[in-house]
Amino acid sequence: MLIRVLPGSPVPLGEQIAACVRGAIADGSAAPGERLPPARQVAASLNVNVHTVLRGYQRLRDEGLIELRRGRGAVVTTAPGIAHRARLTDAVHGLVAQARELGLSGEELLALVRDGLAGAPAATAEGSGSADEAEK
C-alpha cells in the first residue's frame, strides 16, 4: 500500500492519508480482512502526528471501509463488494472536489445529486446483488 501526502496541500493530511488507503482498497492492493499498518508506524514513516493518521482512519471507518477495534488495530471490512464501495466513495470525493473548484455550494451540489437520483431508475435489491456477484 502506497501512501503519499503533500503537507502544503489545502486538503488536510488526514484526508490525504484516507484517500490513499481508500485507493488501495478500491484497486484491491488492500484486500478485505487485511490489517492496515498501525497508525503509530504510519505516523513515523510520514513524519506526521499519530492523531492525523487516526483522523484519516476514522474517516474510513465512518465510510464503512475499515473497522477499528481496540487491540486489533484497523482492518479492511470483509463485507462483500467493499472494493466497489471504496471506488464509489472515491468518486464522491472527486465530485465534491470538482464542485468546490467550480465554486458550487454544498446545497447546490446536493440539489444536483438529488436531481440525478430523481432521474435515475429506482434501486432494486437485485441491483446491489449483482454488484456483490461482480466482486466475487
Binding site: M1, L2, I3, R4, V5, L6, P7, G8, E34, R35, P37, Q41, V42, S45, L46, N47, V48
Partner: peptide, 13 residues
C-alpha cells in the same frame, strides 16, 4: 518522482 516536501511510504505484510 516525488514532489518537494512530499512524504511517501509503502508498506506490505
Amino acid at each position: 518522482p516525488l514532489a518537494e516536501g512530499e512524504m511517501a511510504a509503502w508498506t506490505r505484510t
